[in-house]
């Protein structure tokens, strides 16, 4: 069995009276694709944000590659190998697609206190960015401003940016949300190609996507993880069917 890349112990987060995360224990193995599912308002985005460092837990700890990263904020976590996509697409809308990805490459290339050389002429940034765009299928759209890309293309771009930082862990918050069936199928195919070489935590509503991608699935209901297991185990789990799948059968 592979080693754990990420472990969370007893993560708690409340907003006023609402317990969005209620002592969550969670483990991600190296190279694993681990999906987190749950009904609306279950606290999935809160959980992702706790992992990425955008939120601070009220209690609990997070270990990443053997180090305690609980006290690190999101930029510092990103530098240790986290990358995330947001539920609402977060890209640089006034940059071109290529500039977006090249900037992500730059983030991974040490400090940026370099004041003189035009960044858009550095092949060390542009070439890997171009390759990454090709890989996600946006090669032909490199010079289009990100704001002008279609919704699905923007989601792809965001994933490309995350990958361009060469992360050890990819956190994806509903990557196929709002996509048409063609677009979402292409995204699932792309993520399938990443399987095995990239460790991924995936929050997703689209059950077809989840069951075809995930090695393991955790079910989050009212801030608690009520079950973790392989897709088959989760399908068979009576608690899960009652709490979630039964109500939401499509």
């Amino acid at each position: 069995m592979a080693d754990a890349l990420l472990q969370a112990y007893g993560l708690c987060k409340s907003f006023g009276a609402l317990r969005a995360s209620d002592s969550i224990d969670f483990e991600l193995l190296e190279g694993e694709t681990h999906a987190v599912i749950g009904p609306n308002g279950a606290g999935k985005t809160t959980f992702i944000s706790l992992l990425s460092g955008d939120l601070r837990p009220d209690a609990g700890a997070i270990r990443f590659a053997g180090e305690d990263v609980t006290s690190l904020r999101s930029p510092a976590r990103a530098r240790t190998g986290f990358a995330r996509s947001f539920q609402i697409t977060s890209i640089y809308r006034d940059f071109t697609a290529l500039d977006n990805v090249a900037f992500a490459v730059q983030a991974h290339a040490g400090h940026s206190f370099r004041f003189w050389r035009p960044a858009r002429e550095e092949s060390a940034l542009r070439d890997p960015a171009r390759r990454m765009l090709e890989e996600v299928g946006l090669g032909a759209r490199a010079d289009v401003p990100a704001a002008k890309l279609a919704h699905g293309e923007q989601r792809q771009l965001e994933v490309a940016m995350a990958l361009a930082t060469e992360p050890r862990l990819l956190l994806l918050d509903e990557p196929v949300a709002g996509m048409g069936s063609d677009e979402s199928q292409r995204m699932v195919e792309f993520l399938t190609r990443l399987k095995g070489r990239q460790s991924i935590i995936l929050v997703e509503h689209d059950m077809d996507a989840v069951f075809s991608l995930a090695d393991r699935i955790s079910v989050l209901v009212y801030g608690r993880i009520i079950a973790t297991g392989t897709p088959q185990e989760i399908r068979a789990n009576a608690d899960v069917r009652r709490a979630y799948l039964g109500e939401d059968a499509e």
């Binding site: 990425s52 955008d54 904020r73 999101s74 930029p75 510092a76 990103a78 530098r79 990358a83 995330r84 947001f86 977060s90 890209i91 640089y92 809308r93 006034d94 940059f95 500039d99 900037f103 992500a104 730059q106 983030a107 991974h108 940026s112 206190f113 370099r114 004041f115 003189w116 050389r117 035009p118 960044a119 858009r120 550095e122 940016m161 995350a162 930082t165």
Partner: peptide, 28 residues
Amino acid sequence: HRLVNSRFGMVLRAAKSNEARSRAIGFS
């Protein structure tokens, strides 16, 4: 002109455009 087109300038512009995204890819 040189400054804003350098790597340094890209960080400045990016943080103006979308600070959350900049933080998420590792820039403070």
